[in-house]
Design a binder for these strands. Structure first.
Length: 896
RNA sequence: GGGCGCGUAGCUCAGCGGGAGAGCACCACCUUGACACGGUGGGGGUCAGAGGUUCGAUCCCUCUCGCGCCCACCA
C-alpha cells in the first residue's frame, strides 16, 4: 500500500537510475519515428546548477518527455562548454591561492592544469541535472573541446578563412587589461561612473597666449593626441581650423581639424583626437590620415616608445622629463599625475564632476581599453544575411515573437566579430607563421607545414598563432558539431535542423544569432525551427539573484526540501510568455502539495481496488458519472496539447491542476465513493473508469512531474517498472452523449454547491442533516435528484429529497437551481431575518445583472450593430436572469 | 539618446473587443475512513490615470505617471 505522503528522496534516485540504465533517454536513429531534437545550451563544464539552469532544463525536459510520449524519436543532446575566460579565471584564482600563476606555470602546464580541473569538477553539473530529472541522452554527451568538436572548429575556421570571411587585421579592439586579451563588443557592458570632466588649454602654435580648450574625461590619453577637432560649422573655432595647437606636456604640434564628429553641444565643442585609444577618434584619424601612436600597453600602463620622437620641451607647456616619469605607470595613476602637472602649468581651465558611461569587461569588471592590436576577425555582417532572411521568412520563429525585433536590431547593425583571445584555455587558432610572417591556415600542423614547404620550396620552422578562439565560436557550431560534422553522419542527416532551442534572452546575441550564422553557412539550413525564449528566474521579491545580494536560491536545496517534481511543477506553472518568473520556497511548497494530492488520489484508488483494466473500453461507459469524467479528461488532454504546442507551460500546468484537483478529486472521487460502496456492475464501471482516468492523469502530468507519476504508474500496476516514460501520450476517447452527461452532473454539482452555501450561511452544523424540498421542479429534475440521492445526501449533508407538496413549512432557507427552488426546512435553526438578508443580497445581484442586460438590449444601436449571436446570447442571459429573479422574489414572499 | 516590456483581488499572475478570473494569502466552520501538504463556504478589484475609436473598451489608438530590461560615441 502507498505511504500516506509521497517521499521524493526515497524514490527519485532509484527511478532516475532505472530510466537511464534502461536506455529510456536514448535517441533511436534507426527508428521509423519522426525525430524531435533539442540541443542543450551547454553549461560551463565546471559550473554548478543554478536556478536559471533549473528553469531552462525543466522546460526542455517537459517538451522532450511530452514528445517522447507522443512517439517521436527524441534526441536531447547534452554537453558542456569549455567556457574560455570563465574557466581560465577559476583556475588562475586557484593558482593564485597556491602562490603560483599561469605565467609561472607556462602554457603547456597551465592547460594541463585546466584539463585536470575539468576532470575533477566536470561531472558536477551533469550529476545535478540528473537530480532534476533531465532525460538527456547521456551517452551522446559532448564537450566543446572534444577531438571531434575541435576538428569542426578548425574546419570552420579554415573554410571561412579561405572564403575571406575570417581575416587577420590590426584594429582597435576592446582590450581587457585584467585578462590582457581582446574581448568582443558583446562582452563589454556600460557602467555609469562618476568621473571628472577636465577642461585643458591647448596653446595655439605661434599665437602667444591663445588657447583652444578641450574637454576630456581621459587626460592620460592626451599623450597620444594627434589633432584637435572642431565642427566645420562651429563659428567659435572657424578661424582656428588649419592652424596648429601645441600638445601640452609633449610639445608636439598637432593640427586643428574640422570634422563633423565634433559636437558643438558637448564639452567645449573642441575635442582631442587620440586614434589609438578611442573608437571614434580612430575613425577621425582614418578620415584625416593621422598617425595613431599607442600610449598604453597590454596592461594599460603608459608606454612612450611611439611618441618619444615628437616630444620637445616648451616653456610653461611641455615637459618631456615629466612625461618620462609616467612610463610604466598605471593609467589611473598617470591620469592623476597629468592633471596635477597641468594644473601646475596653469593649463587646467576647469574640472567638473561628470557622470558618464564607461565600458567595462563583463567578467573582469575593469574598464575596457581600446587598443590597437593584431586580431582575427569574422565577417559577421556577411554571415548574418541568410540568418536574417530565415527569420524574416519564418523558417525560424521566435516565441514569443517580439524577440525577433531584438534579433533584427542587432543582426542589422553588426561590426566585425573579433574572435581571437589572448588566453591559453580554448581552441588554439589553426594559423601558422613562416619566418617572413607568411600565414598558413590549415586543419593541422602537418598540413600547414606542407603548405609552407610548397610556398618556400623548402622545409621551414613554423610558429603557431598564440591566440585561442572566442568560446562562442565553438558554441556557434554546437547544433552540427555535436552530431558529428564535418563527417556526414546518420545523426547529422536525421537530427539537423533541430526542432526547438530553449534559452534565455541574454544569449540571443552571444549564441542564438551565431548558431544561425554558422548553421546556415555550413549546413545550408536553419539550426532550429523554433527559438523559445524564456525569462529570468528572480527571487520571491522580483530581485535578480546575485551573490552580492545574498538572495541566491539553490535549486538543489529546494529539491532536497520538496522534491524535484515540486520544483519542476512550480517552474512549469510560473512560466508564462515573456515574463520573468519569481520563485521562492513558498511556490515550491505549494507545488509539493499538488504532488501530494495526486499521490493521495492514487492512494484512494489503490485502497478501493481501482486497478487498471486492459479490457475496459471507455467508449462503452454507461454511467453519466463515468462519461462525465471521461469527457473532463478529454478536455484536459485538449487543453494540455494546445498549451504545450504553443509553449504555454503555465496553461499546461493549470489544465492538469484544475482537472486533477477540482474535477477528479473534488467531485468525481467524492461521487464515486457511494457507488463503490454499493458494489455490483455499476461499481465495476466506476472502478474501471477511475483507473482509466487516473492513468490519463499520470501520463498528462509525467512531463512536468516525472518521478511521482512514474512511481505511481509502477506501484498501481499500470505498466512495468519504469515504463511510463515510454508510454503513449493520452488521446481523447469517444464519449457517448458527453453533453448529456455534462448537463446531468453539472446540475448535481450546482445543487450540492447551493445547498452547501445555504447551510454555511445559515450556520447549520455539519453534523446536522437536513431534508430538502424541491418546488416547481420538472419531473426529469426530480428523477435526476432521485438518481443522485446518495451523492447529494453525502456531499450536501442532506437526509432526504422530496418534491414540495402544498405550502412550505415555516422557517425555511431557499436557493434557486435552474427552474427549481430548493427549500431547506430549518425550523428552529433558521434565523428568518438572516435568511431574508441573504436572499435579498442574491436578489440584488441577479437584479443588477438583469437590469444591465435589459438596458443593453434596449439600446437600438447595440441590437442593430452587434453581431446576431452576441445579441442572442445576451437575450438568453437576460431570460435566465429574469427567471431566477422571479424565483428569488417568490422565495422572499414566502418568508415575508 | 534609441528600442522593448510591464502596471488586473493583500501577493504572484492568467485573460486582451461583448458576463472581471486562478493559485496563494485572508475570514468562518470542519480532525467526515485518500489527502490538515486536507475539506466546505465566504469576503476582497472605479483592470495605473486621462483622452479617443466603437453600439460596446481591462482588451485597440494617443498622451501622462510609475517600474523593469536591452542597445548606444568614456568631450
Amino acid at each position: 500500500m502507498l505511504e500516506k505522503t509521497y517521499d521524493p528522496a526515497a524514490i527519485e534516485g532509484r527511478r532516475y537510475a532505472e530510466w537511464e540504465e534502461s536506455g529510456a533517454f536514448a535517441a533511436r536513429p534507426e527508428s521509423p519515428a519522426r525525430p524531435f531534437t533539442i540541443m542543450v545550451p551547454p553549461p560551463n563544464v565546471t559550473g554548478i546548477l543554478h536556478m536559471g539552469h533549473a528553469l531552462t532544463f525543466t522546460l526542455q525536459d517537459t517538451l522532450i518527455r511530452w514528445r517522447r510520449m507522443e512517439g517521436r524519436d527524441t534526441l536531447w543532446q547534452p554537453g558542456t562548454d569549455h567556457a574560455g575566460i570563465a574557466t581560465q579565471m577559476v583556475v588562475e584564482r586557484r593558482l593564485a591561492e597556491e602562490g603560483s600563476s599561469r605565467r609561472a606555470l607556462g602554457r603547456e602546464a597551465f592547460v594541463e592544469r585546466v584539463w585536470r580541473w575539468r576532470e575533477e569538477s566536470g561531472g558536477t553539473i551533469t550529476r545535478q541535472l540528473r537530480r532534476l530529472g533531465a532525460s538527456l541522452d547521456w551517452p551522446r554527451e559532448r564537450f566543446t573541446m572534444d577531438p571531434g568538436l575541435s576538428e569542426a572548429v578548425r574546419r570552420v575556421f579554415v573554410t571561412l578563412h579561405r572564403e575571406g570571411l575570417i581575416y587577420r587585421a590590426r584594429r582597435l579592439v576592446n582590450w581587457d587589461p585584467k585578462f590582457q586579451s581582446a574581448i568582443s563588443d558583446l562582452e563589454v557592458e556600460s557602467r555609469a561612473v562618476k568621473g571628472t570632466l577636465w577642461h585643458i588649454r591647448y596653446p595655439i602654435a605661434g599665437a602667444g597666449g591663445e588657447f583652444i580648450i578641450v574637454a576630456t574625461t581621459r587626460p592620460e590619453t592626451m599623450l597620444g593626441d594627434v589633432a584637435v577637432a572642431v565642427h566645420p560649422a562651429d563659428g567659435r573655432y572657424r578661424a582656428l581650423i588649419g592652424r596648429e595647437a601645441v600638445l601640452p606636456l609633449i610639445g608636439r604640434r598637432i593640427p586643428i581639424i574640422a570634422d563633423p564628429y565634433s559636437d558643438p553641444e558637448k564639452g567645449t565643442g573642441a575635442v582631442k583626437i587620440t586614434p589609438a585609444h578611442d573608437f571614434n577618434d580612430f575613425k577621425v584619424g582614418e578620415r584625416h590620415g593621422l598617425p595613431m601612436p599607442s600610449v598604453l600597453d597590454r596592461e594599460a600602463k603608459i608606454r612612450l616608445d611611439e611618441i618619444r620622437e615628437g616630444m620637445s620641451p616648451v616653456p610653461a607647456v611641455a615637459d618631456p622629463a615629466f612625461v618620462e616619469t609616467l612610463a610604466g605607470q598605471d593609467r589611473f595613476a598617470a591620469r592623476e599625475a597629468i592633471v596635477r602637472t597641468l594644473e601646475e602649468l596653469g593649463l587646467l581651465a576647469k574640472s567638473e564632476a561628470h557622470q558618464h558611461q564607461v565600458p567595462h569587461g563583463d567578467r573582469s569588471g575593469v574598464p575596457i581599453e581600446p587598443l590597437l592590436t593584431w586580431q582575427w576577425f569574422c565577417n559577421a555582417v556577411e554571415l548574418a544575411k541568410p540568418a536574417i532572411a530565415a527569420v524574416e521568412s519564418g523558417q525560424t520563429v521566435f516565441v514569443p515573437r517580439q524577440w525577433e525585433n531584438t534579433f533584427f536590431a542587432w543582426m542589422r547593425n553588426l561590426e566585425p566579430w573579433c574572435i581571437s583571445r589572448q588566453l591559453w584555455w580554448g581552441h588554439r587558432i589553426p594559423a601558422w607563421y613562416g619566418p617572413d610572417e607568411t600565414i598558413f591556415v590549415a586543419d593541422t600542423a602537418e598540413e600547414a607545414a606542407a603548405a609552407a614547404e610548397r610556398h618556400y620550396g623548402r622545409t621551414v620552422a613554423l610558429r603557431q598563432d598564440e591566440d585561442v578562439l572566442d568560446t562562442w565560436f565553438s558554441s556557434a557550431l554546437w547544433p552540427f558539431s555535436t552530431l558529428g560534422w564535418p563527417e556526414k553522419t546518420p545523426e547529422l542527416a536525421r537530427y539537423y535542423p533541430t526542432d526547438v532551442l530553449v534559452t534565455g534572452f541574454d544569449i540571443i546575441f552571444f549564441w542564438v544569432a551565431r548558431m544561425m550564422m554558422m548553421g546556415h553557412h555550413f549546413m545550408r539550413d536553419v539550426p532550429f525551427r523554433t527559438v523559445y525564449i524564456h525569462g529570468l528566474v528572480r527571487d520571491q521579491h522580483g530581485q535578480k539573484m546575485a551573490k552580492s545580494k545574498g538572495n541566491i536560491i539553490d535549486p538543489l536545496e529546494l529539491i532536497d526540501a520538496y522534491g524535484a517534481d515540486a520544483l519542476r511543477f512550480a517552474i512549469v506553472q510560473l512560466t508564462g510568455p515573456g515574463r520573468d518568473i519569481k520563485l521562492g520556497p513558498a511556490r515550491v511548497e505549494t507545488a509539493r502539495s499538488f504532488v501530494t494530492k495526486i499521490w493521495n488520489a492514487a492512494r484512494f484508488c489503490e485502497m478501493n481496488g481501482i486497478r487498471p483494466d486492459p479490457e475496459f473500453r471507455p467508449e462503452t461507459a454507461k454511467r453519466p458519472l463515468c462519461r462525465w469524467v471521461l469527457d473532463g479528461a478529454n478536455r484536459a488532454i485538449h487543453e494540455a496539447n494546445a498549451a504545450l504546442e504553443a509553449f504555454r507551460f503555465d496553461e499546461y500546468a493549470s489544465a492538469c491542476y484544475h482537472f486533477a484537483w477540482h474535477l477528479f478529486c473534488d467531485w468525481f472521487l467524492e461521487f464515486a465513493k457511494p457507488e463503490l460502496a454499493a458494489g455490483g456492475a455499476e461499481a465495476a464501471e466506476v472502478r474501471a473508469t477511475a483507473a482509466h482516468v487516473l492513468g490519463t492523469l499520470l501520463r498528462l502530468l509525467h512531463p512536468a512531474t516525472p518521478f511521482a507519476t512514474e512511481e505511481l504508474w509502477d506501484r498501481l500496476g499500470y505498466g512495468p517498472s519504469g515504463s511510463l516514460i515510454r508510454t503513449a501520450w493520452p488521446a481523447p476517447v469517444p464519449v457517448a452523449d458527453a453533453a448529456g452527461a455534462r448537463a446531468e452532473l453539472d446540475w448535481v454539482v450546482r445543487l450540492i454547491s447551493e445547498v452547501r452555501t445555504v447551510r454555511a450561511e445559515m450556520n447549520v452544523p455539519p453534523a446536522t442533516l437536513t431534508p430538502i424540498l424541491l418546488k416547481d421542479a420538472l419531473p426529469e429534475t426530480l428523477a435526476r435528484a432521485e438518481r443522485w440521492r446518495e451523492a447529494i445526501g453525502r456531499l450536501a449533508r442532506v437526509s432526504q429529497i422530496r418534491p414540495l407538496e402544498g405550502a412550505p413549512p415555516r422557517g425555511v432557507a431557499q436557493a434557486v437551481v435552474d427552474e427549481a427552488t430548493v427549500i431547506l426546512p430549518l425550523a428552529e435553526i433558521v434565523d428568518l431575518a438572516q435568511e431574508r438578508a441573504r436572499l435579498d443580497r442574491e436578489r440584488g445581484k441577479v437584479g443588477r445583472e438583469a437590469e444591465r442586460l435589459k438596458q443593453k438590449l434596449a439600446d437600438e444601436a447595440f441590437v442593430s450593430r452587434a453581431p446576431e449571436d452576441v445579441v442572442e446570447e445576451n437575450r438568453e442571459r437576460l431570460a435566465a436572469a429574469e427567471a431566477e429573479l422571479a424565483r428569488l422574489e417568490a422565495a422572499l414572499r414566502r418568508i415575508a
